[in-house]
Nucleic acid binder design. Structure first.
Lengths: 250, 250
DNA sequence: GCCACGTTTCGGCCGACCCCGAAACGAAAC
DNA sequence: GTTTCGTTTCGGGGTCGGCCGAAACGTGGC
C-alpha cells in the first residue's frame, strides 16, 4: 500500500482521529430519503407517532420503526412510549438548528403546489407557521422586521436582541432577562425562512415570543398541521406593541 | 402539551415534494468516512490537491478522485485544474458554516493524542488556528472575549457587532461599514470552537480580522497546516488596540 | 521525442442497507 | 376472555456504493 506513505501533507497532523467517522455517522442518519422526510416533518416541533410518520413518508410501518430506532439511537430524536404508541420528537433545539442549516443549502423548491387543497395548504403555511418552537412565514418575518425597526433587534451587525429589546421582553411579555439566557442556547439568532428567503427570530427569544403569543391567543394553530394564523385581538395587540400593521396576516 | 395527543396527520399536506430527497442527497455527500475526512481537512480554507487528500485519508488515488467528483458535483467543493494537478476547496463560507454546525453536534473527542509529535501538533492547534477564513483556538476565543469586554461585540443578546465595534473596524483595521456588509453573508456570527467549547468571531468581520492580522504579520502561519501563532509585534499591537494580554499565545 | 507522475476510468468484489411481508408482541377496547 | 390495532422483529431480495488494482490519459520536465 504505497499510497499510504506517498508524499503526504506530512506535517498536517493526524487525520483528526475518527472525527471524520463521527461526522459520517451523523450525516448518514439524514442520508436517506425516508429518514430525512421524518426529520423534516418533526421540524414542526410536535411529537408524532410511528404510524403517522410511516403514512406520511409512505413506507411500511416496519420500515418506519427501524428508521426511528436509528434516529433515536443516533441522538437526533427522543421518544416516549405511551400505551401502544411510540411518540418521537426532535431531541433538542440544536437538532432543529442543524436541520435548518442543512435545508438552507437545498435548491429552492422547483415544483409549485398542484391541486386546490395543496394550494390552500401551502398558502396557509406561507402566511404563518411554526418552525420548531418559533414563528416563521410572513408572520414570523413581519414580527422580526417590526422588532428591528423599533430597535429591539439588531440585524445590522449580526443578529442580537438589543438592550431595549430585552426590556421590551420584560415589560411587554413578562419574560425577564434571566429567562432569556437559559442554558447554552443563544438568546436570539436568525433562522432562514424557506418561503420568505429572509431571516426570522429564533433562539430563546423566538421560542418565548411564540409561546407567549399562542398563550394569549394572539396567534392560533389552524388545522392539525404547523400552520398558524393571527387573530383579530392579536393584530390589535401587536399594532399597539410593535406598530405592526398585519391585516394581511389575519 | 396537548399537541402531543394528535390524530393522523392526514391534512398535513404532501410530504414536502422531494425536499426530503434533496436533504438526503446533501447529507449523503458527507455520509462517508473518506468524504467527511476530505471536508474536515478542507475546513482550513486552503486548496488541496487530489493526491494530498488521498494520502491524508489513506485511500487510493482512484477512490479519492471519485469522491472529489461527487463532492464537487454535489456543490460542496469547487475545483481548479492547474497543470496536472486538481485543486479543490470548499465552495463557500456557507459550506464551512454547514460543516461547523454538524461538527458541533459530534461527541467531544474521546482519545487524547498519542506520541510526542501528535501532542505538539495538537497543542499548536489548540493555541491558535484558522477555521476556514477566521481565527480559532485560544487565540480566536481570546480576541473574541477582548472585543466583547471592550463593547465591540454583543454576545449577550445573540451575536453581533455593536456600533462601536463597527467604528473600531473602520478606525483600527481600515475596514469600513460597507465592506462589512458584503453580500448575504452575515457581518458577524458566532462559531463554536471545538477545542475551547466557546464561541469565537466568524462571518465577514471574522474573516476581515483574520486577513488583516495575517497581512500585518501580527499572526503567522506555523508549519504547513492550519496552526497560527501570535508574533511579538502582534501581541504588542493587540495590547494597545484591545487591551489583550496574550503572552501565553506567543 | 520520451519519460515521470498526478489523475481518471473501468471492472470486479464485497459489505451495507433499504425495502417489504409475515409473524410475534403487547396494550387497549369490548 | 377475545379482538383490535400499533408496533416490533426477522428473513430475504435487491440495489447502492465503497474499495481496490490495472490501464489509459494528459501535462510537465528532460
Amino acid at each position: 500500500m504505497d499510497y499510504m506513505t506517498t508524499r503526504a501533507p506530512s506535517s498536517v497532523s493526524a487525520p483528526a482521529p475518527d472525527h471524520s467517522s463521527e461526522l459520517a455517522r451523523l450525516a448518514g442518519l439524514l442520508a436517506d430519503r425516508t429518514r430525512a422526510a421524518f426529520c423534516l416533518a418533526l421540524l414542526d416541533g410536535r411529537a408524532w407517532t410511528a404510524g403517522e410518520l410511516a403514512a406520511y413518508a409512505r413506507v411500511a410501518p416496519s420500515s418506519a420503526s427501524e428508521h426511528l430506532t436509528r434516529l433515536t439511537e443516533g441522538g437526533l430524536l427522543v421518544q416516549r412510549r405511551q400505551g401502544r404508541h411510540r411518540y418521537v420528537q426532535l431531541a433538542s433545539p440544536r437538532v432543529a438548528e442543524l436541520l435548518e442549516v442543512l435545508t438552507a443549502h437545498l435548491e429552492p423548491p422547483a415544483a409549485p403546489p398542484r391541486g386546490l387543497r395543496a394550494v390552500n395548504a401551502s398558502a396557509a403555511l406561507a402566511r404563518g407557521r411554526t418552525c420548531y418552537d418559533h414563528l416563521a412565514g410572513r408572520l414570523g418575518v413581519a414580527l422580526t422586521d417590526a422588532m428591528t425597526e423599533r430597535g429591539l433587534l439588531d440585524q445590522d451587525g449580526g443578529f442580537a436582541l438589543t438592550g431595549t429589546g430585552r426590556t421590551w421582553f420584560a415589560d411587554a411579555l413578562g419574560t425577564d432577562a434571566a429567562a432569556l439566557r437559559a442554558g447554552r442556547r443563544p438568546t436570539a439568532r436568525g433562522c432562514l425562512d424557506w418561503t420568505e428567503r429572509r431571516q426570522h427570530l429564533a433562539g430563546v427569544a423566538g421560542a418565548r415570543l411564540c409561546a407567549e403569543l399562542l398563550e394569549r391567543a394572539w396567534v392560533r394553530r389552524v388545522g392539525s398541521g404547523r400552520a398558524v394564523r393571527l387573530t383579530t385581538t392579536g393584530a390589535g395587540a401587536l399594532r399597539d406593541l410593535l406598530g405592526l400593521e398585519a391585516e394581511a396576516l389575519l
